[in-house]
Nucleic acid binder design. Structure first.
Lengths: 324, 324
DNA sequence: AACTGTATGTCAACCGGTTGACATGTCAAA
DNA sequence: TTTGACATGTCAACCGGTTGACATACAGTT
């Protein structure tokens, strides 16, 4: 690969001049500028970003730590993160923690070693102290950790919407299936809002919590089947994620339970798939692109050394389709 | 951030010794090794990978260029790529080309500038020559470009499986919906196999090709609706992707067309979602994890300067579910 | 004639590691 | 006593850029 020296020699100038052209600093005549650019093109010169990063102490790389990119929610989130980050010139290093503490820690160290300018954390398997130790700019999703700025959505309100809709539709025997509540995530507030709202109307929901290790369809199906067998009179279900809700549809189909006829179902997130499945899923929509955009703005702000807003809670909306 | 010099000073040794400890080279006494490690821990030292990369001329980073991570097929593929790449110590830089030539070119340049050790290309909007120019180790998916090693699956066989199943189920008025055939992808062979197989049995399929810009659900729906209205007597459809097939289900549902009653449907890929939707999708399964694993092995081989196999075509299987 | 703005060049330090060449010293085996 | 494996140190070049300090030279103003 050609280096800045090769370019300088061939163009008959010094590396300082080439560097000036490259970085638009100091005085450069139009003539020299063009000559340098021409030589660069001829030699197919690509400046070595590694060397630049080293001397500038800036990599323009951001780390994205998520449980798994295979999950549509994280895939869509990451998609928007990449979209908005690339507008500002940042690249994304992808890290799938697979809900494994060891992997998550390794990835954090790796990102630190690679001197990324900042990181997004959407996997939170570690202890709070582990995160507090980190000195790099960080934005978390759906989790408050000390003074790390976070982005989330009105989780409690989402739960309330779900409760109100199910009640309005006449459900009285209502269940809620949620991920592991032990992880101290803001998404647990969905459960709070839902339960509180129902109790306020005299309905005591059945809450089913997934184990910490349940993150695949088989696990979902097992839990859902169990729920339906244990409480055969259920007439409404609020699942804390769309994929989970789709599994509910699947299990109900296989058991001949009609949705929305016998059971009304509400999901959460509004991933693209939600409007594709049959019956189309009623769900609580998180503004994914807004969330991503905000997260990118915040992280960029932190990197620039600005003060940024600590709490960033975006509104959710009820999207009614065919499962209610 | 602490540097190797700080560590050396505090440990009372030279940077050479610390470097030796770090890289396990030369003679180091157990005593010194431990002392150095202890100091590293105390100072929370993380070696600067940027500096290492610069001097070693190796970044251990791989680029992954795909149309969009929001599409479940690419999300799952990327997931497995990351899984297997990380086992070998590689990290993944994520690049969404969004089917835009400009973006794809920018990303290739960016990856070159960042001196990634190799790249996976699953977005192919550029001219063949653009790819041939590249000197880095590259693996492509589903496209043959000169002597760049590629991984794909038995696309033609997949098409044949689909044709045979539809015929066996009694379909006679058969349609095929496929992505843009102009892109010179191996996946176009699905169409070849399908069409050839049907013709061999005296059935002439209706082939609907998506425009080069169609890559969203609305576009899909429009085309599918058009197809169904233009040919109301269709009794079998082979869609060249599962997401596309799910859109077919959606449109049929909305038009009151029963699947598999009136129309039998086969998808392609077998993404996770395929078994989740209702009715569960009959599809041609690509061995995604195997494909990813092979691609990682190949790229790693190229990076190590080994000779690797040029053609890597993995078997597909028919997965029969409820849409046929 | 003195000054100023523009356009380059020269030189060298720096970013934070890696690595090779070579020197020195210890200790145990031959 | 010699030899050689082991353990560390010293020194400096190198990876490929960035950047500041300073020098030189020319053209146009005042």
């Amino acid at each position: 690969m050609a280096t800045i020296k090769d370019v300088a020699e061939k163009a008959g100038v010094t590396v300082t001049t080439v560097s000036r052209v490259l970085n638009n600093r100091g005085y450069i005549s139009e003539e020299t500028r063009e000559k340098v650019y021409r030589v660069m093109r001829e030699m197919q010169y690509q400046p070595n970003e590694i060397a630049r990063s080293l001397s500038r102490k800036k990599t323009m790389i951001l780390g994205m730590i998520i449980p798994t990119i295979a999950h549509p929610f994280f895939a869509e989130l990451t998609n928007y993160i990449e979209k908005h980050a690339s507008k500002l010139g940042y690249k994304i290093l992808l890290c799938n923690s697979r809900m494994d503490q060891g992997k998550e820690k390794e990835y954090i160290d790796m990102l630190t070693s690679n001197r990324v300018d900042g990181m997004f954390m959407s996997s939170h398997t570690l202890e709070v102290d582990e995160y507090k130790k980190l000195k790099q700019p960080i934005i978390t999703f759906d989790r408050r950790i000390a003074d790390i700025p976070y982005v989330s959505s009105e989780n409690e309100q989402g739960g309330i919407y779900a409760a109100e809709l199910l009640l309005k539709k006449g459900c009285r025997r209502i269940a809620h299936i949620t991920g592991n509540l032990g992880l101290d995530l803001l998404s647990n507030q969905r459960t709070n809002g839902f339960v509180k709202s129902l109790r306020g109307r005299g309905v005591e929901p059945i809450v089913f919590e997934l184990g910490p290790d349940v993150f695949d369809s088989e696990g979902y199906e097992r839990v859902i089947t169990e729920l339906l067998e244990q409480y055969p009179d259920i007439d409404g279900i609020f699942a804390s994620g769309d994929i989970l809700a789709m599994n509910v549809i699947k299990v109900c189909m296989s058991k001949g339970i009609d949705i929305p006829g016998r059971i009304k179902l509400i999901g959460y997130d509004d991933i693209e798939m939600a409007s594709l499945v049959s019956p189309a899923l009623t769900t609580i929509r998180q503004p994914l692109e807004e969330i991503a955009k905000r997260a990118v703005q915040l992280l960029d702000g932190l990197i620039r050394g600005e003060e940024v807003q600590h709490d960033n809670v975006l509104p959710v909306t009820l999207v009614e389709r065919s499962t209610t």
